[in-house]
């Protein structure tokens, strides 16, 4: 007993080191599960407040670019509105079929990264504004991420640049779909997987969300095909997609929610056991 005690005292630093590392490993591994301890992320009040104040100052310097972006968005929306007005009969029919299928809440990006393996985005809207976990995040150029943690006034979202997550996407022309996953290297390029060899893919072809996962509506732009690789022995072709959103300069985004999501998930659950 005395010997054991002496041993413990003599190597107490080593034991403390190993113990703390064990705690860290537990944290790292547990983090892999999708929903996590709520205070250990940047949607908590203190970090949210710090990021928000900071971004207030930083955005002041990029007001010109933000204005340009918003003006461009306005033009686009006006053009679309015009098109919708011309075809208003279709709109009313569509509305009757899908009353407010997707709900949108606009938010500002207050923290963002592109150079980690697992990148996250912090938004300045939370439960009190109606943001919920599993809402999709869309920027003016296309799909951005999915909300995972929400506090009262802030929320954190997984970015597409996070290899723990994939977006169900499809090729616009051929409608073939597969998961879109980031490989952790270039923050402008992701890979569209599981597209079989017989599908002809043209460089420059548009890639859009498939709408199958109930996170994003169908047809949100994701990017353009950059190159196609044929690898010896692979069942699928490797398609590199250039993202349409520049993740380095995200400012304003919308959190969208599929109102009928639970109905869709419930229905799909029925099939799972068979």
């Amino acid at each position: 007993m005395r010997g054991l005690l002496n041993f413990l005292v003599k190597y107490h630093v080593l034991f403390l080191f190993l113990f703390i590392q064990l705690v860290c490993i537990t944290l790292i591994v547990r983090y892999n599960s999708f929903h996590r301890v709520n205070f250990l992320n940047s949607s908590n009040t203190v970090t949210g407040k710090i990021f928000e104040n900071y971004i207030g100052v930083v955005n002041y310097f990029s007001l010109r670019k933000i204005n340009d972006d918003l003006a461009r968005d306005n033009t686009l929306l006006r053009r679309e509105l015009q098109a919708v007005k011309l075809a208003d009969i279709d709109l009313t029919l569509e509305r009757r079929a899908n009353p407010d299928l997707f709900n949108a809440i606009s938010a500002q990006v207050i923290n963002n990264s592109v150079n980690k393996q697992y990148n996250y985005i912090t938004l300045n809207k939370g439960t009190s504004h109606g943001v919920k976990p599993d809402m999709g995040v869309i920027g003016s150029d296309g799909a951005v991420g999915v909300v995972i943690n929400v506090s009262k006034n802030y929320s954190t979202a997984l970015s597409i640049l996070n290899s723990r997550w994939s977006v169900s996407s499809k090729l616009e022309k051929s409608n073939h779909f597969g998961p879109l996953r980031w490989d952790g290297n270039d923050p402008g390029v992701v890979a569209l997987e599981e597209i079989p060899y017989h599908v002809h893919v043209a460089v420059g072809e548009k890639v859009i969300t498939s709408g199958y996962s109930a996170i994003f509506p169908e047809g949100i732009p994701v990017g353009k095909v950059k190159s196609v690789e044929h690898r010896e022995g692979d069942t699928f072709q490797k398609i590199w997609v250039e993202l349409s959103t520049d993740f380095r300069s995200l400012t304003f985004v919308d959190a969208v929610e599929n109102v009928n999501k639970f109905e869709q998930i419930e229905l799909e659950e029925l099939m799972k056991d068979e």
């Binding site: 705690v23 860290c24 944290l27 790292i28 983090y31 940047s42 970090t47 954190t156």
Partner: peptide, 8 residues
């Protein structure tokens, strides 16, 4: 870690 969402 808390700031960059990578506990541990």
């Amino acid at each position: 870690d808390i700031f960059v969402n990578t506990p541990g």
